[in-house]
Simulated scan of single mutants.
Amino acid sequence: MAHMLATYIALPGTTAEAMEHWQGVFGGDLEIIRYGEAQLKDLPFDPPPNAVAHASLTLPAGIITGGDVMDHSTEYPLRGTAYSLLYTTDTPEEAQTYIDRLIAGGGSLGMPFEQAPWGDWYGQVFDRYGVMWAFSCAVI
């Protein structure tokens, strides 16, 4: 198998919902494995059977993976600017379509999608789960 880098996001019990939402925005192939069907043994925690053990959304541009947080004693802040998922598109119109879908799905604009000082198009949106999506498109 070739080397590949994928994003992994741990969500507080909303992984299945988020992955289904992102599939509705971007398309792609979604696979969700719940603890009840995974038949894992000797786990250091007792997961609810419906919790997501692993999910993957395969897009033409990459893979988003994730699972439900099992350690509820630690707070995992999602909304912030320390990280983002950067999605590069072929046209500004394509990026704007994804931004509009994320906002329509309960997200909020972080930075308008417009030509940036370096010449390319760039903008940011926070989806309804608090994940920051950055969009980029080279000037054609």
Score class of each variant (00 low, 15 high):
Phe26Ala: 06
Gly119Lys: 00
Gly28Cys: 05
Asp29Thr: 10
Gln96Pro: 01
Leu85Asp: 07
Arg128Glu: 10
Leu40Trp: 00
Arg79Met: 15
Tyr129Gln: 09
Asp29Ser: 10
Glu17Thr: 13
Val52Phe: 07
Ile63Met: 12
Arg79Ile: 14
Gly107Trp: 02
Glu94Ile: 03
Gly110Cys: 03
Ala82Thr: 14
Gln23Leu: 04
Pro49Trp: 00
Leu30Met: 05
Gly105Cys: 05
Thr14Met: 04
Pro92Asp: 01
Gly119Tyr: 00
Asp29Val: 05
Met132Ala: 10
Glu114Cys: 03
Gln23His: 04
Gln124Glu: 14
Ala138Asn: 06
Tyr76Ser: 14
Glu31Ile: 07
Thr74Ile: 15
Tyr8Asp: 14
Cys137Met: 00
Leu109Arg: 11
Leu43His: 07
Asp29Gln: 06
Thr7Val: 15
Leu5Arg: 09
Gly66Tyr: 02
Met1Leu: 07
Lys41Cys: 09
Glu114His: 03
Tyr35Lys: 02
Asp68Gly: 12
Val69Phe: 03
His21Glu: 12
Ala138Gly: 10
Asp120Tyr: 00
Thr88Arg: 04
Ala104Tyr: 03
Arg34Pro: 06
Cys137Glu: 01
Asp127Thr: 09
Gln96His: 02
Leu40Phe: 10
Ala10Trp: 02
Lys41Phe: 10
Glu94Pro: 08
Ile9Val: 15
Thr91Met: 02
Tyr35Glu: 07
Gln124Trp: 00
Asp127Phe: 08
Ile103Trp: 01
Tyr76Ala: 14
Leu11Gly: 12
Leu109Gln: 14
Leu11Glu: 04
Ser73Lys: 15
Thr58Gln: 12
Ala116Leu: 01
Glu114Gly: 04
Ala10Met: 12
Tyr8Cys: 15
Leu57Ala: 11
Asp68His: 09
Leu11Pro: 13
